[in-house]
């Protein structure tokens, strides 16, 4: 499902030149910069992982190796349950928001229609809104809708994971749209026209030409949505119901009191999980 390699023929032809370019000072500087950036990104993560094995109960010093925090973590149903909830919410909201967002991006880039400017504004709003405001708005709104439902059907609803997913989709869609639109902007439409000239119907043209070309954008958007959902704290806090706690909320409350290596341990596990997922999907793709 994941492949960021689709290239127009023109770029492929240019590859050798770029390969040569890498031997220049500019290429070296670029590589050095990238190495530094990856270090910058990974130093805190490495510390996190290392200190999930430290004996130091503050998790800030290396005082010896232990697995204790992991055993403790596995016994901690709250944290484990919250982690499972978080992954479930992230997958569900990413799936829906990526589909809806891609469709919207296509509509916005390919069509001129009345209300397009208003739609444009509406699409940017979720990006512009401070998280806390959206959280409060959704909380008040869900209370209102639940009251309405109770009046009409007599059924008493509660916030639960579904309300969180609905909210996460609502804020993720816009991010997906922004990224996918970027890849549609530099899109060479003559490729589609050529396909149409060769007799492909629009459905085939989309799947054979358009989709592979904008796939990097779709993947980028999906990854962004996934990351946002995993990390969201304040909307999750307000829209989750009793007993359906999410990891960021648990971590926030815990971290504000005292960070323990247990938190480092669950972060390490989440990392391992994410990485194996990526590796797995890559392996599957290679085989195909």
């Amino acid at each position: 499902m994941i492949e960021a390699t689709s290239q127009p023929a023109a770029t492929r032809a240019a590859k050798p030149a770029i390969e040569r370019g890498r031997l220049t000072w500019g290429g070296l500087a670029l590589t050095a910069h990238a190495v530094l950036m990856y270090l910058f990104l990974y130093v805190p993560i490495t510390i996190l992982v290392i200190f999930s094995f430290t004996r130091d109960e503050f998790g800030v010093r290396w005082t010896g190796f232990t697995f204790e925090w992991y055993t403790r973590l596995f016994a901690n149903e709250r944290l484990m349950g919250a982690a499972a909830n978080t992954l479930y919410v992230a997958f569900a909201s990413t799936l829906v928001s990526t589909i809806l967002g891609t469709l919207l991006a296509l509509a916005m880039e390919r069509y001129r229609f009345r209300g397009r400017n208003a739609t444009d504004a509406l699409l940017y709003l979720p990006i512009v809104i401070p998280e806390i405001v959206m959280a409060v708005a959704l909380l008040a709104f869900s209370a209102f809708v639940f009251d309405l439902i109770r009046l009409v059907t007599g059924e008493s609803l509660r916030r639960n994971l579904t309300t969180v997913i609905i909210a996460h989709i609502a804020f993720s869609i816009s991010f997906v749209v922004v990224v996918v639109r970027t890849s549609l902007k530099n899109f060479d439409r003559r490729l589609e026209e050529a396909a149409a000239d060769l007799g492909a119907d629009s459905w085939r043209t989309f799947w054979r030409i358009t989709f592979p070309l904008i796939l990097p954008g779709i993947i980028g958007g999906a990854l962004l949505a996934f990351t946002l959902s995993l990390d969201d704290f304040i909307i999750s806090l307000f829209l989750s119901g009793p007993g359906t706690s999410l990891l960021p909320v648990e971590v926030y409350n815990k971290v504000r009191r005292a960070v323990t290596p247990e938190i480092n341990a669950i972060s390490t596990l989440m990392l391992i999980f994410s990485i194996s997922l990526v590796v797995l999907s890559q392996a599957v793709q290679r085989r195909r």
Binding site: L139, A140, S142, A143, F146, D147, S156, L157, R158, R159, F238, G241, P242
Partner: peptide, 8 residues
């Protein structure tokens, strides 16, 4: 959360 009602 409580003000919004139906917190559970």
């Amino acid at each position: 959360k409580v003000r919004a009602g139906n917190s559970g």
